[in-house]
């Protein structure tokens, strides 16, 4: 290991005096590295919130509802107000110039623009 790396103490030591169980004891080397930790979705499912009274706040029911305001659309490319919508690419656009650009975009870019607002075509 290079001197400057050691000096900066970049690398976390494997042994810590203040720990009761060391990292290497807990997660021995060579054993399945891809230990699975429950993702948030799985955690929430296991919490069984449906068994508790609905007026008790929990992680799921404090989530905000969808907006009641009319949704203003913006041009996917320029960010200006977008009165138009291109049915071929599904992109929204502000004016004729942007439309020209929209039509000349390769599909990959169209999909990336759509992915920004979570509207891309996802193949499963």
């Amino acid at each position: 290991m290079e001197a400057e790396v050691i000096e900066a103490e970049l690398v976390l030591p494997t042994y810590m005096s203040f720990k009761r169980i060391q990292m290497y004891e807990k997660y021995p080397k060579g054993q399945s590295r891809g230990r699975h930790w429950k993702h948030l979705k799985q955690i929430l499912q296991a919490e069984n919130y449906q068994n508790y009274p609905p007026d008790e706040p929990n992680y799921v029911n404090i989530e905000s509802p969808p907006s009641m305001h009319p949704c203003k659309r913006i041009c996917d490319i320029t960010g200006f107000e977008a009165p138009y919508y291109d049915p071929r690419t599904n992109l929204r656009y502000a004016n004729a110039e942007v439309f020209k650009l929209v039509r000349s975009l390769p599909n990959e870019y169209v999909q990336r623009y759509l992915a920004l607002r979570n509207a891309a075509v996802v193949l499963k």
């Binding site: 007026d55 989530e63 905000s64 509802p65 969808p66 907006s67 009641m68 305001h69 949704c71 203003k72 913006i74 920004l116 607002r117 979570n118 509207a119």
Partner: peptide, 24 residues
């Protein structure tokens, strides 16, 4: 406007209204 990035929830300003409405 979280729906601009595909999150269908209220934005910061509306959240205060939601919060007040939710008070017991």
């Amino acid at each position: 406007r979280p729906n601009w990035v595909g999150i269908d929830q209220v934005g910061l300003d509306e959240m205060t209204g939601v919060s007040i409405r939710r008070l017991p």
